[in-house]
């Protein structure tokens, strides 16, 4: 375990030496600071002043989704080149010619990336929460819990990108991962839309009410993010099928890691 943690720590150090990481950090913080303006403005709808706490809640929810989605993209972009670069620049040989097993190496890389990206997302979410608190005196207690929940999505995205990067070029691996995740978002979004009373009124057929079997087992990253949002908003959570999306994504993570370890175990260095 200490070897996995050591490699995870080296992974964090390696990423912190990259200029692109600081560029992404700066862009993200700039975006968060721009959002401060949303809390300062006063909103009037139909000649009625909107409650500032309601505005803060909606702005914070929007920011929550944007950060969680943006971090998925960032996780994929950071992960796509890790293993190919490690193989080319001698990092893989550095680790694997020592008493380090291949699972320890891969898990260390995965854990390091996950810790870094999750911490990054947590800091951004915490900044939004603090801004909302400062501007409206309203604390959104579920915000940080929701952030932690969304870090499961990041784990899946990193694991899948690492796996894809073993069998295809890094950029293609990133595109493939984004396509898999994006398809889930569109599919789950459509199902959520179909579950609204208005849509159910329009589509009075069985197919609209009972999703196909593959939709039940498809990685529900969108649903996990939605679940996090319901923790912040306090709204009722709607899910598909008998399995909670957290369990679904956790099982998908385990499957991806198992395949990743198997494929990397067979790899020629």
């Amino acid at each position: 375990m200490d070897k996995v943690l050591r490699i995870a720590w080296y992974t964090v150090q390696d990423q912190l030496q990259r200029k692109s990481f600081y560029l992404l950090l700066a862009v993200s913080l700039l975006f968060v600071l721009f959002l401060r303006g949303c809390y300062d403005a006063s909103y009037t709808i139909n000649h009625q002043q909107v409650n500032s706490i309601a505005v803060a809640r909606h702005a914070s929810l929007f920011a929550f989704h944007l950060i969680a989605g943006g971090m998925l993209l960032m996780a994929v972009l950071i992960s796509m080149s890790i293993l190919p670069v490690d193989q080319n620049d001698g990092t893989m040989v550095l680790y694997l010619c020592r008493p380090i097993s291949r699972p320890q190496y891969v898990l260390g890389r995965l854990a390091g990336l996950w810790l870094l990206v999750s911490l990054f997302m947590f800091v951004l979410h915490a900044t939004i929460m603090l801004i909302a608190w400062q501007k409206t005196d309203a604390i959104l207690p579920g915000y940080l819990i929701a952030s932690l929940i969304c870090s499961l999505n990041l784990f899946f995205a990193i694991g899948l990108t690492l796996l894809c990067s073993l069998i295809m070029p890094g950029f293609v691996a990133a595109l493939a991962t984004l396509a898999i995740i994006g398809f889930g978002f569109v599919s789950d979004g459509a199902i959520r839309l179909m579950s609204t009373p208005m849509a159910q009124g329009v589509f009075q057929n069985k197919a609209a009410q009972e999703p196909a079997w593959w939709r039940l087992i498809y990685p529900k990253l969108s649903m996990v993010q939605h679940y996090g949002a319901t923790i912040i908003s306090g709204d009722e959570f709607y899910t598909i099928g008998p399995v909670h999306p957290l369990v679904n994504v956790a099982v998908c993570c385990a499957i991806v890691v198992a395949i990743l370890l198997f494929v990397f175990g067979k790899k020629e260095i």
Partner: peptide, 15 residues
């Protein structure tokens, strides 16, 4: 098995 083994690869690469 590699605990007490040193290895120098051909045209050694260093990150």
């Amino acid at each position: 098995s590699r605990a007490k083994t040193g290895y120098l690869e051909e045209q050694h690469r260093i990150p």
